[in-house]
Amino acid sequence: MASKTNDPAAHADDIVSRRGEVSASLAHACSRIKDVLTYSSAYLVFIAMVEVLTVHVVLSLPLSPAPVVVGLVTFSVYAGDRIADAEGDALSTPERSAFVTRHREALSLLTAGAYGVAIALAITGGPVALAITLLPGGFWILYASDWFPTLGRRFKRLKQVLVVNSAMVASAWAIAVVGLPLAFAEAAITPLSGVVFVYFLVDTFVNTEIPNVRDVEADAADGVSTLPVVFGIRRTRHALYGLDLFLVAFVVLTLAFGPLTVALAGAILVGLGYALVLAWFVGRTNAPGRLAIAGESKHLVVFALLLVSTAGL
């Protein structure tokens, strides 16, 4: 009687079965990694670091710890915000809320430690670098934490105030992304750095409003006034078109009369074209989460084009 292990057909089945298990395990692991990157906002860390590197390239600054500091602060603030809003997010992003709730302890420790390390690194850049590093955390306290309303009836979470909320987020990150490399390099503020700041300010504003379309019901329930909550999704889409077109005009003007180079202007304009296409999908897609990630990913496109055009890579 032949044993099963000597049965060629059974052996082949076994191999197929093992291959199936391995591929299933790989798929599971990939899915887990994707969850971690998405729900913990780790992908934002990567994009924020690329933004800072873009500033380094555009302003020709020496490499510094600024990208690491911004990355750590981005993780700390965004993941910290998700910890704070885990309950409220259960309505709009139930899977992310469940992930954050399940890993609350670990995320809490990691985010606190990340900001602590970022501050220590920023000290090496001097007082201005330290102040800029503290800015997103300070803005977050005014923006999202429940501490600000405790100061009095007239104070409410700035997250609830129309335009101020997104403008605050955009300001904090634009200052950090542009200011920190300058502070580390002890470089002066130039017209070109001003142009880059305006670009990141408006662009971050747009990218802040895109996920607000997905969160419209939860924000309305939470008393948060965003463009989609107040003006509706169609008008929000028009507003985003307007902001992107404003940036297009701004880039063209600064190319014509200002310090912008053709390579940089070209990269930014391609990125803005990409942003306009994404704006068309606002309110028209069944995957609003992916739209938000795609919006942030625009900076990867711009950075890649910059590298190709300026460094010849």
């Binding site: 700390s76 910290g80 420790l109 900001y115 602590g116 501050i119 220590a120 955390g137």
Partner: peptide, 10 residues
């Protein structure tokens, strides 16, 4: 500084 500020956040 790193530990102190991290612990302060916690």
């Amino acid at each position: 500084v790193a530990i102190g500020s991290g612990a302060a956040i916690l």
